[in-house]
């Protein structure tokens, strides 16, 4: 059962030959495939990490740009609002000034026309007084005559005003 003989040498030779065959035809290509796969997976992982880092950078860049754009847009809106406010204020001021000028001109016109009307009234009253006085002096005045003269004078005054 436990007997050493020439089989031992045969087994050593058999095993060395088996090693040589498997080493050359099996393990070499198999380990190459395993190494290639390992390298490829490592490469893919590295690429993925690199792509991830690039994407992160790009994202940060875009976010920074977005923040800048938001700040700029806010500035632009603020400036526009301020300009609009300034313009509106200027227009309001101009309108107020124009209204004030118009008002002043209208006041002056009214004052001038009132003065003219007063002057005109004065001259007419004077003329009418003179007319009435001359007629009173030239005629013996009855109440009827007096009324008629007054009516005529008023009619003349009306005609004069209409002809003006």
């Amino acid at each position: 059962m436990v007997e050493l003989n020439g089989t031992l040498l045969w087994q050593i030779v058999n095993f060395v030959i088996l090693c040589a065959i498997l080493g050359h035809f099996a393990y070499k290509p198999m380990l190459k495939v395993l190494d290639d796969r390992k390298a490829r997976i490592q490469n893919d992982l590295d690429s993925a990490a690199s792509a991830n880092a690039d994407a992160q950078k790009l994202k940060e860049s875009y976010e920074a740009q977005l923040r800048d754009a938001q700040v700029k847009a806010q500035d632009i809106v603020s400036k526009a609002v301020k300009e609009a406010q300034v313009q509106a204020q200027a227009q309001i001021d101009a309108a107020r000034e124009a209204i004030a000028k118009e008002k002043e001109a209208a006041s002056k016109q009214i004052e001038r026309e009132r003065t003219e009307a007063l002057e005109d009234l004065k001259s007419q009253v004077a003329a009418l007084s003179c007319d009435i006085a001359s007629k009173i002096i030239s005629k013996n005045m009855t109440p009827d005559t007096n009324d008629r003269l007054i009516a005529e004078s008023i009619a003349k005054l009306g005609a004069r005003n209409a002809g003006k």
Binding site: N5, G6, T7, W10, Q11, N14, L18, F25, A26, Y27
Partner: peptide, 27 residues
């Protein structure tokens, strides 16, 4: 000139052939 256990040698070859076939099939 050596005493050799034939059955051991044959089953060794059988084992070797199985190993070779399986690993070659795998590669």
């Amino acid at each position: 000139g050596m005493q050799v256990n034939l059955d051991t040698i044959f089953t060794t070859w059988l084992a070797a052939i199985i190993v070779i076939l399986v690993t070659l099939a795998a590669t």
